[in-house]
Design a protein around this nucleic acid. Structure first.
Length: 265
DNA sequence: ATGGTCGCGCAGCGA
């Protein structure tokens, strides 16, 4: 297979964002695009419009909140909804996966923990734990597998616009980062960071207060991949252009470039 | 100065 472009984007309502998604697809040409916060029911998902653009898709959503999807120009097979043990249903349509060509792709929307120490914070940690247990139990880290989505965790201080101001705040606490660390110990690598080491490379900026133009953001949208994907990865981008212009999402798309003919696997 | 802006859905909550 030739180059594969694998992307993830929290669109904050696919209904409100469809024009921007179509625009982005037309110039970025991802082979696989994971979406989060579609905020729609399955029956409203614009599968036909996406098929016209050359994408098969799977969507998992039940209404006004959450909702995840995978668009693939490399095929969709072996769809899995949720964790398979009902845990996802309680937290609401936050994980879906499919075989896209030779890669098992997950699209995930990790719960927002709101205030540190709140019940929502612990539910977020539990959800990340469920993700790790599901991967360890059902999947093989030696295979080509990617977990893409909005993790609501900034992996390290480079990923926060003002680490001093965020000390102890949600998205950066040790337990949240430890939960990402467990995914790393299982075998997932933060593919964006393989070829982009600088700070200030954010994927989300608050709508309020002109945060985007003040470069006040965080990198919380991640593409995690197993060792084979890490060996294939040649480049990565965050497309800040998509955060500009009319009716943008508060997140920008993140994309990695994979060359399955490259590296040792 | 505890604000600010979105989306959903039609009040006020969640992010």
């Amino acid at each position: 297979m030739s180059e594969v472009r694998l992307a993830t984007w929290n669109v904050n309502s696919l209904r409100a964002r469809m024009d921007r998604v179509v625009e982005w697809i037309s110039y970025a040409r991802p082979d696989v695009l994971c979406l989060q916060e579609t905020k729609m029911q399955d029956r409203d998902f614009p599968a036909h419009d996406l098929a016209d653009l050359g994408y098969e898709a799977v969507h998992h959503g039940d209404g006004g909140w959450n909702g995840v999807a995978i668009l693939s120009a490399a095929g969709i097979a072996g769809v899995r909804i949720g964790f398979g043990d009902g845990a996802d249903d309680e937290m609401g349509c936050r994980i879906v996966s499919a075989e896209c060509g030779e890669i098992r792709v997950f699209s995930v929307y990790v719960p927002n923990g709101r205030e540190v120490g709140s019940e929502f914070y612990y539910a977020k940690l539990e959800w990340l734990g469920s993700l790790q247990r599901m991967l360890a139990k059902e999947w093989d880290q030696r295979e080509a597998l990617a977990v893409c989505g909005d993790f609501n965790v900034a992996p390290d201080d480079r990923d926060v616009w003002n680490p001093a101001a965020f000390e102890g705040a949600t998205h950066v606490t040790e337990p949240e980062r430890d939960a990402l660390g467990l995914l790393g110990r299982w075998g997932l690598v933060d593919l964006f960071r393989l070829h982009n080491k600088a700070d200030g490379l954010f994927s989300w900026w608050d709508y309020r207060g002109g945060a985007f133009h003040k470069h006040q953001g965080m990198r919380i949208d991640l593409i995690l991949g197993t060792a084979p994907l890490a060996s294939w990865c040649t480049a990565s981008i965050v497309d800040r252009q998509a955060r500009k212009g009319p009716q943008p999402s508060d997140h920008a798309p993140v994309m990695v470039y994979l060359d399955p003919g490259r590296g040792g696997s």
